[in-house]
Design a protein around this nucleic acid. Structure first.
Length: 492
RNA sequence: CGGGGUGUAGCGUAGCCCGGUAUCGCGCCUGCUUUGGGAGCAGGAGAUCGUCAGUUCGAAUCUGGCCACCCCGACCA
């Protein structure tokens, strides 16, 4: 076990928060509910951004940027959406400070600088974007609009946790406008597929694709799709959402266009997003009691090289021998660090990089120089092997791929072992308490039943799965007919 | 926003009940010995005890106000 890191079994929540801090990903700032994302954590986010951004571009989207502030009247135009977010909005009411006459050296809000109309700090950007699209769209020839933005948003949360829920967070939000219902629905589903692919191929986290129940749907959407991931403590994490907005925002913002047939119609919309929350998901899906385990395809650092030396002379010899190796690894596109500090001992460094989840560690000492070998350790299984220095780049590249697929396989196995079909309410409650994870159960489709189950068990319907849910049965709670099993879980 | 708790060195803490300027560990600095799994020894620096006021010869300690943060609940990606 890592020094001063609680084990997952002892206290999962504490383990998580300590790990985030000790692995240098992020820390709490002095601003309540807000975090500082440190360079190591931010590099991870940048890697995620890069992969996602490419996937967005490959599916025809372009990036743009819309303002942080949304005038209140604009914000409230789509009522359901505004209502849904009202309780967690930060508002700008003034635009100037002045010296406080009663407290020298202190500032106060200048009461004379009150804004005529308050500005809402965006909790999401549908309002400002649809208000803008109105100006851009007249004809079917202007459609579709396929825009994404990378931005920060603010949701004034009561309780926050690093990455998982913070008052300000970073995300991307796609906002598209289409001429037909079918095209918009396809877009929402396409982006859900993109998210699922990203989660599985890059994060190495298996996800269930599904639709949200009425109770869990995004306010203002006709349909909300999501990907749900399972964490090691048996709780679910919503890892991405994609909304089919119907014509709700077009109606609210009066965005009409002339069809080919010369008629006027409202535009069909979608929006979709993933946030820095995914970092929390990566941590909780893979890491162990020794620290982070990061998937190679997103890790800020792929390989760390630790020299074992007694003297400066010895270090010089090692450096000379290892430099070509570093060059080759970098040429192969890998991020490599040679940790030649003489202020820390090798053992300390080993522990440190395990804590930080670097996928592959190479140790090289005098013994290796004699034999032309390197000691290669993989973080996911902690196995060590001695390899020939020659051809090491090929071996490392293959090893990284193997770690990537092993992480996914491991997480998938965990999910399968923690997905349980239940047919009675007693069993439902017992599985939730004893085992956790996803519970597949029949549900009568009503919000009342969903709410009662939530009140009694704290479990919510994570999604109505898109695949493999067709099977008639009786609702575990009410006994009424059900068209298919849905996914229940306690969730973050 | 309800209920509970805590503020003492960069971090974690002792001292508070019973007033006399502060304990220990980690980290940091210097030196020597060490280095294939979190080194050892010796020396050293670092705190107006959250904040404002009150009581007192004297306040980390007692009293009151304020501020901040944490935990539990309701709300949430």
């Amino acid at each position: 076990m890592a020094k001063e890191l609680p084990t997952r079994a002892e206290d999962y929540a504490q383990w998580y928060v300590e790990l985030v801090k000790k692995a240098d990903l992020a820390e709490n700032s002095d601003v309540r509910g807000c975090m500082v994302i440190k360079p190591y954590g931010y590099t991870l986010w940048e890697n995620m951004q890069r992969a996602l951004d490419k996937m967005f571009k490959d599916t025809g989207h372009v990036n743009a940027y819309f303002p942080l502030f949304v005038p209140k009247s604009m914000f409230e135009a789509e009522e359901k959406n505004a209502e849904g977010f009202a309780k967690e909005c930060a508002i700008v009411t003034h635009y100037r400070l002045k010296n406080d006459p009663s407290k020298p050296g202190k500032l106060m809000v200048d009461p004379e600088a009150k804004l005529e109309e308050e500005l809402v700090v965006r909790p999401t950007s549908e309002a400002i974007i649809w208000n803008t699209y109105k100006k851009w769209i007249q004809s079917y020839r202007d459609l579709p609009i396929l825009i994404n933005q990378w931005a920060n948003v603010v949701r004034w949360e009561m309780r926050t946790r690093l990455f998982l829920r913070t008052a300000e967070f970073l995300w991307q939000e796609g906002h598209t406008a289409h001429a037909t219902r079918q095209e918009a629905e396809q877009e929402a589903r396409l982006m859900l597929d993109v998210y699922a692919e990203f989660a599985e191929r890059f994060m190495a986290v298996p996800v269930i694709k599904g639709r949200k129940s009425d109770g869990e749907r995004f306010p203002g959407a006709v349909d909300t799709y999501c990907i749900e991931a399972l964490m090691q403590d048996g709780k679910a994490l919503q890892a991405g959402t994609s909304h089919f907005l119907g014509q709700n925002f077009a109606t609210a913002f009066d965005v009409q266009f002339s069809t080919k047939e010369g008629k006027l119609d409202y535009v069909w919309g979608t929006s979709w997003g993933v946030s820095t929350r995914l970092i929390g998901g990566i941590i909780m899906a893979h890491s162990d009691d020794d620290g982070l385990i990061l998937p190679p395809r997103l890790a800020p650092l792929h390989v760390v090289i630790v020299p074992i030396f007694r003297s400066e002379e010895e270090l010089n010899k090692i450096t000379a021998a290892i430099e070509p190796v570093i060059g080759d690894l970098r040429k192969a596109g890998l991020s490599v660090k040679f940790d030649n500090r003489d202020t820390q001992k090798p053992g300390f460094k080993f522990a440190e990089y395990e804590l930080k989840g670097v996928p592959v560690r190479i140790a090289v000492g005098p013994r290796d120089l004699e034999n032309g070998t390197l000691e290669v350790a993989r973080r996911d299984t902690k196995q060590k092997q001695v390899l020939k220095m020659e051809g090491i780049t090929t071996a490392i590249t293959a090893l990284l791929e193997e770690i990537q697929s092993n992480l996914f396989a491991r997480a998938l196995k965990f999910r399968e072992e923690h997905t349980t079909r239940v047919d009675s309410y007693e069993e439902f409650k017992r599985v939730l308490d004893d085992k956790g994870g996803f519970v597949l159960a029949h549900w009568d489709g009503t919000t009342e039943t969903e709410q009662r189950i939530k009140d009694e068990t704290k479990a919510t319907i994570r999604c109505i799965p898109l695949e493999g849910g067709q099977e008639t049965g009786a609702c575990v709670y009410s006994g009424k007919p059900s068209a298919g099993r849905v996914v229940f879980a306690r969730a973050y």
